Simulated assay, not measured.
Amino acid sequence: MKIDVLNIEGKSTGRSVELPSEIFGVEPNDHAVYLAVKAYHAAQRQGTHKAKEKGEITGSTKKIKRQKGTGTARAGSIKSGLFRGGGRMFGPRADRNYNLKLNKKVKQLARASALSTKAKDGKIVVIEDFTFDNPKTSNYAGMLASLSAADKKSLLVLSEYDKNLLLSSRNLKKAQVVNAKDLNTFQILDAQSIILSEGVIEKMQESFA
């Protein structure tokens, strides 16, 4: 798939690039995408939720009634989860790890599936490599406006870390800048407009194919 290269003013540079078919032209695998998004959300969970169990509740340990003859179930402690104010039975414990393991090829397939879907829908834009002399939000917002992405969730994918671009974008609620090596399936699906720097395509082919 060939796509025109634009400048930051949204005008054609007269050049075009070929998007690698092994990344932007695969048959989408919905299940791989589902697993990748599920793993992403699981990794966001802190796992610090905690409930007190019977041994952690402050209260008397005296046996509250005799063992037999009451007509009700036996009970040995007011701290039991059966009573109001007692501990929770089998409650969540702190430091639980929710991470899900995905094979490398499943991650690659999910990422390629998401990119192929965006390419098919015409939501990928390629711009020539650029940078800002100083961090300035208005410059970045102007670039997005030129690319008709000012009111959309945008994702700029760079081949290398660029501090000025990162600082220029972080005050814009719907804008995100990411290095190619850190790109994940959820970010691709969540973006309404994906902006690729011209130099990142070759790096993506090396890393993702």
Rank of each mutant, 00 (worst) to 15 (best):
K50I: 10
T61W: 10
G55A: 15
K54W: 01
G85T: 06
I64M: 12
E53M: 13
G76Q: 11
E53I: 12
H41W: 02
T58N: 13
K52W: 07
G55L: 13
K62M: 09
I78L: 09
H49A: 15
F90N: 13
T61D: 14
K65F: 08
G55Y: 11
M89I: 15
S80P: 05
R66F: 07
Q46V: 09
S60A: 09
E56C: 00
R88W: 06
G81F: 00
S80D: 04
T72E: 09
K65R: 15
L82Q: 02
G81V: 01
T72D: 07
R45S: 03
S80M: 08
K52A: 02
G91T: 04
K63Q: 07
A43N: 13
S60L: 08
A51P: 01
K54A: 10
K62R: 15
G76P: 00
Q44I: 01
R66S: 10
K68E: 09
Q44K: 14
R45I: 04
K63N: 01
G81E: 02
I57G: 04
R84I: 12
R45Q: 09
T70A: 01
A43V: 00
A75V: 12
G47A: 07
G87H: 05
F90D: 09
G91H: 05
K68D: 00
G55I: 14
G76V: 11
I64W: 05
S77D: 06
A51F: 02
S60H: 08
G86F: 00
R66D: 06
G87M: 04
S80L: 02
T58M: 13
G47Q: 07
S60D: 07
F90T: 07
G76N: 11
I64G: 02
R45D: 08
K65L: 11
M89L: 15
K52G: 01
T48Y: 14
G71I: 04
G71L: 04
G69H: 02
T70W: 10
G87E: 06
T61C: 08
G55H: 15
K79D: 01
K65Y: 12
E56R: 03
R74A: 14
R84E: 04
K65E: 09
I64D: 05
K79S: 03
Q44G: 01
T48G: 06
K52R: 12
G59Q: 03
A51R: 04
K79Q: 00
Q67L: 13
A42G: 02
F90Y: 14
T70L: 11
I57Q: 02
E53Q: 13
K52D: 07
I78N: 00
H49M: 07
K62Y: 04
K68V: 03
I78P: 04
R45K: 14
K68S: 07
K68C: 00
G91M: 04
L82V: 08
G85L: 07
A75M: 14
